[in-house]
Design a protein around this nucleic acid. Structure first.
Lengths: 156, 156
DNA sequence: GTAAAACTGATTGTGCGCAATATAATGGAG
DNA sequence: CTCCATTATATTGCGCACAATCAGTTTTAC
């Protein structure tokens, strides 16, 4: 019918392409992460903790939130589940008791070795080459920073 | 330390770039969709229903699932919420009682006019031009189809 | 014609995301 | 020192996603 309404066609939406691709990638991670008994967001948290552990830096809950763009409503229960499984420790700062430092345990650090093979296994057999991944990743990072730069979507 | 472990650096993960960009876009939709009192997945369902309504075709729950890559565990409660608000109808097929047809109501159809301005308003002021969006969208669609082509991630 | 298999949705349970609110501690301004 | 705004995390509630299971229906095999 009215062709100007194609702006609402599902296949013309960047948002849906992002939404579907994101869930497809997450679905591909799922069986690999199941071997470690981790969910995908838990895996992302562990990536940050492993990185900080190598650098000897301390990670607070708010650091995880800033890095992963998640708030305490998501992180607190997630971290509690990881702590129950003895993968991380949550320790309240004695100097400033508002702060909770999160660190991987020995068991959590050991898991890193198993995780190292995941990125390679993930896309093998998909026919997506390294160069293409890097280009897409950088474009997504650029778009993300543009989206985050402006405070209000409607101001202007 | 060991540089080969950069494969686990958060900033080197395509998956995280996708994850973060997807949530940033969804967050930008949220205030616009709030004007229609829709969540983002509800909006995607309405897009499919509007499209089918224009073509005069019938949409079953499984059609929505195939198009949006969602299963009934997600769709059934979502559709019930839309039905409670009189935006869609859910009608079980009398010939084959396994099938449930979903269609927008008059109120649901009327909502489309308000929705039409959303895509334009969304990215205005972000400095992301049309050409770039189309290119990114097509690349995501290509990667999605590659990811969905292969059944098993691990069968080499 | 009956039994087995496949299909379509619904239900249940777990774990995110995220808004809104609460709690508690800190760091000033006076 | 006291009040108060700010900061950091926790709690609650709702709506997805998705796995697992179940209940009818229809189709297929024999």
């Amino acid at each position: 019918m009215s062709t100007d309404d194609d702006v609402l066609a599902l296949d013309n939406q960047l948002c849906f392409a992002l939404y579907a691709a994101n869930r497809a990638v997450t679905a591909r991670y799922r069986p690999l992460l199941a071997e470690l008994n981790l969910t995908y967001p838990q895996y992302l948290v562990m990536l940050v903790l492993w990185e900080a552990h190598q650098e000897g830096s301390v990670v607070r809950v708010s650091d995880l939130g800033n890095r992963l763009r998640l708030d305490s409503g998501t992180l607190t229960p997630l971290l509690k589940r990881l702590a129950e499984r003895d993968l991380v420790t949550r320790q309240r700062n004695t100097a400033d008791e508002r702060v909770v430092a999160v660190a991987p345990t020995e068991k959590g650090i050991a898991m890193r070795r198993q995780a190292r093979e995941i990125p390679e296994r993930l896309l093998c057999g998909t026919g997506i080459d390294e160069e293409r991944i890097v280009a897409l990743r950088e474009e997504l990072r650029a778009v993300l920073s543009l989206l985050e730069a402006r405070g209000e979507p409607s101001d202007q």
